[in-house]
Amino acid sequence: MTIAGSIILIMLGAILTWAVEFDLAGLDINVVGVVLMLGGLVGLGFGLYRIRVARRAVGPIDEPVHRHEIYEEPQARRTTVYEDRRHYDEPPL
């Protein structure tokens, strides 16, 4: 469950608990709202835990980092020369 999904469950549960006054036979809407809020809180905690573990698991720190930066000279650019061949003996239009 993602963090956004958990927040949506918490909001939906809060709406059902405190804003809805509807009665169904054999179903208490307030209890359903509380259950949704608790499920959202559990999902939010799990999502935050997953983010924390993923950020921590980078790799072993004991290994030295060897960087080999290789710089190569860029190849010379080819330039294209365009010739403008005009014949001035033609009459202008």
Rank of each mutant, 00 (worst) to 15 (best):
V32R: 13
M1E: 08
T17G: 00
A4D: 14
L36R: 08
R67L: 13
D23G: 12
D23A: 14
A57H: 02
A54Q: 08
R56V: 03
I7L: 04
G43Y: 06
R86E: 01
V32P: 08
E73H: 15
Y88C: 01
D28V: 15
A4M: 12
Y88D: 06
L9M: 11
G59P: 02
E83T: 10
E72T: 15
A57C: 01
E21P: 04
I10P: 04
L38F: 15
T79I: 10
L27H: 12
R85G: 01
E21V: 02
G13R: 07
L24Y: 08
V65R: 11
G40V: 08
R52Q: 00
P92Y: 12
V35P: 00
S6I: 06
A14P: 00
L9E: 13
G13C: 10
I10F: 07
P91Q: 06
F46L: 13
G13M: 11
V20D: 04
T17F: 06
P60G: 01
G40R: 10
H68T: 01
V58Y: 12
R85H: 07
A57V: 01
A57Y: 02
Y71W: 06
W18E: 09
V42Y: 15
E90L: 09
Y49L: 14
L38W: 15
A25M: 05
E72I: 15
H66M: 07
V20R: 01
R86N: 01
V31A: 11
G59A: 07
G5M: 04
T2Y: 08
G59R: 01
G33W: 00
